[in-house]
Write a protein that binds this DNA or RNA. Sequence first.
DNA 1: TAGTGGTCTAGACCACTTT
DNA 2: AAGTGGTCTAGACCACTAG
Lengths: 244, 244
Amino acid sequence: MGTTTPAAVPEPKYWHLKSVLSDALESDFEVGEILPNERDLAARFGVARATLRQALDQLELEGRLQRRRGVGTTVAPPRVGVAVGDTEPRWPGDSDEAWEPVGYVEQQPPAAVTRLLGAAADDKVHVVRRVRARHGQPVAAELVYVPAASVPGLTRIDAEGPALARAVLRELQRLELQGQERTVELGSATADDAKELDRLPGAPVLVVTARYTSGDATAAVAVGTYRADTCRLTFGEDGGLLAG
Amino acid sequence: MGTTTPAAVPEPKYWHLKSVLSDALESDFEVGEILPNERDLAARFGVARATLRQALDQLELEGRLQRRRGVGTTVAPPRVGVAVGDTEPRWPGDSDEAWEPVGYVEQQPPAAVTRLLGAAADDKVHVVRRVRARHGQPVAAELVYVPAASVPGLTRIDAEGPALARAVLRELQRLELQGQERTVELGSATADDAKELDRLPGAPVLVVTARYTSGDATAAVAVGTYRADTCRLTFGEDGGLLAG
DNA sequence: TAGTGGTCTAGACCACTTT
DNA sequence: AAGTGGTCTAGACCACTAG
């Protein structure tokens, strides 16, 4: 028998569909424009709605689409560059893109954070919740874990919510933090994060874990969750060409 | 009418299922252990297979599970820390975790890369494919775009594949690169990337775009795709506590 | 109230790996 | 050949938004 062609693995329908839609997004639609609804699109391409949704899921994961329940599917703007590099240690900051403390959380740090805090985790750990927005849209929610030992000067423990949160961060800021140790991984939004980020629980997020050191010790640990659909994290000497 | 409870939004089945499975993974299973197959699991929890798969999808996205067609679903080991920070500019390196050039690609850079290369994109651009492995498993595939102007000393353009790839990188290494400009965003693996990473097309990846500068000009641009399921990217002064 | 995306079902077949 | 995960269907109902 003659050698046949290498079998030509059939491309999944949703994969092909994604390419077609991707091309159409570039040539036939403007940013912000509403696409036909899923039932119409599925019919138009002759596939089941679930199959169409597989293609849309991927495009949304890549930040090309934005879907809102009860409203529709729109073409997403390019991802916004969010700096998480050297610029961050000036904690509160005051630009439009700064973090906004929203509350003081009463809870135990998760095991992974406790490990990073080391010995400092033995005593009380302050937990501050803060959020970050760009162009009016929330892009990140963060929990900052600060061992009481790191902020001995903290007074007004009687304050509440945002006020107490600010007090903790203000004290932390007095330390000379040289923490440049960070990790980035993929995660899915918890119910709490989802609420802050205006997304559904389980939405894909980029989890940024930062360890701030003062001398040799861990002064604080921050775990930030960034909306993976809308954010492009930028590192290094402040933006540059990649900042977008 | 009396005030009723705040409606108590029903938690999606797959969301609850995920929590249950997540707990079970920690208490009842060892890393590498094989879970019951999807049909059994679905029956055990009294849900459709598609619903169970939604839960498994999320756990896989978080790096808790590993699924292999024809084999089964296993409990994944903790994510491996992969350094993408200051340590990288020593390009080839020779440790176990180094990049391995695998070929020289004949193709035009995508528009986004051309933009980053600036004027240098006008002449020929060398494109090198390289991969990176940890513990025998591939973790990243990268395309390095090097304008011909950046490597004037390049000879042996007659070489092929890996040999030519090495030649290009060797020449690039002669420059004093100070590029610390990087971005990280979520993407899905192309067919090519998927093959290198031993995953299916569309698998979630962390896309790291690096711009290497020499003086003021862009000397090269690298676009790396890291397996989001198995990798935790580490930045900053070489690992430290977060490296894991 | 009508229309949207989100969840869920109960099946079927396919691609792949192992035996 | 048997068993696994991956794809696909054709429905149904729910949660949410807007007119």
